[in-house]
Write a protein that binds this DNA or RNA. Structure first.
Length: 272
DNA sequence: TCTCGTGTTTCTTG
DNA sequence: TCAAGAAACACGAG
């Protein structure tokens, strides 16, 4: 479930390879994962390069090597893994970077993810133009108000999923934010009062911050869960209940995505 | 066998 | 021309 915090977890997983030299590279070159890239050049470019560092912006990752940069987006089902140097790639292991002591693996069964690479050590142009993080100072209440008004007729849920405004927010995080704030997902974005905008702003910051802390910083085999009492733990099955009221969650498609909410916590809908 | 889905891009509609 | 919604992408899980 790669939303911003899970992406952070996967990025750190590959940190095991920082400082290491690339022995060889395996690619499934014909796959859509590499769309638009001259993938046939990738093994030659990366072999003998050193993995220098990595960074995440929203759901995007950039791995900097001594000869090139590697941009990775996990799509819906992508993941990064680390295995021993004798790792044998499976059907869905589209990129494997072998170092002396380990293999860094990018796996994605549904091929919605993307790998891009750029020669040289400068950060690529697409990376430089990504919007600033929601944890940055530039994300202010005034900025939120402006976005909500600009997309005034769209449901709140749909607007929260727009990456140009809310980089890193995905389906479960949007549901979590709306549930905590008491907003019905199909509420028109332009109808929020000043007090409600303040509440939404606070919940966006909180959910991002706590998710990064609990999921993004996990060090185990799999990423950890967000705190008990979050909607997260209930929203995956039809039997899921509101953590506060115990009532079965409602389900509908809002903004093109499966959305779950509590009829008691989140009472006020469209209003337009 | 059928339906669903954690993301993004492109197409269609209004 | 713009905003919003739908469809498409590809595959495994239930």
């Amino acid at each position: 479930m790669p939303e911003l915090a899970e992406v952070e977890f996967f990025r750190k997983r590959w940190s095991a390879g920082i400082g290491g030299c690339v022995d060889r590279v395996h690619v499934h070159g014909t796959k859509r994962i590499f769309r638009g890239e001259a993938v046939e050049r990738l093994p030659a470019v990366l072999t003998d390069a050193v993995l220098v560092d990595s960074e995440r912006k929203a759901k995007q990752m950039l791995f900097r090597l001594s000869t090139a940069t590697l941009g990775i987006h996990l799509g819906m089902t992508g993941e990064l893994l680390v295995a021993g140097a004798d790792f044998v790639p499976g059907k869905h292991d589209h990129l494997v970077i072998y170092q002396r002591e380990r293999a860094l693996i990018f796996r994605d069964p549904r091929l919605f993810g993307r790998v891009r690479f750029t020669l040289g050590t400068d950060d690529p142009a697409w990376w430089k133009v990504l919007p600033e993080e929601l944890t940055a100072r530039s994300f202010t209440k005034a900025r939120l108000r402006e976005v909500l008004q600009r997309r005034g007729k769209a449901p709140l849920k749909a607007v929260l999923l727009m990456q140009e405004f809310f980089p890193g927010i995905g389906n479960w995080m949007a549901d979590e934010i709306l549930w905590r704030g008491g907003f019905l997902p199909d509420r028109r974005s332009g109808t929020l009062t000043e007090l409600e905008i303040a509440r939404l702003y606070r919940e966006i910051r909180e959910v991002v911050k706590i998710s990064l802390k609990t999921i993004g910083n996990s060090t185990g085999e799999t990423f950890g869960d967000p705190p008990r009492g979050w909607l997260f733990h209930e929203r995956w099955t039809a039997k899921g209940c509101c953590p506060k009221h115990g009532v079965t969650l409602n389900t509908a498609t809002v903004g093109g995505r499966t959305t779950r909410w509590c009829g008691i916590c989140q009472p006020i809908g469209k209003l337009m």
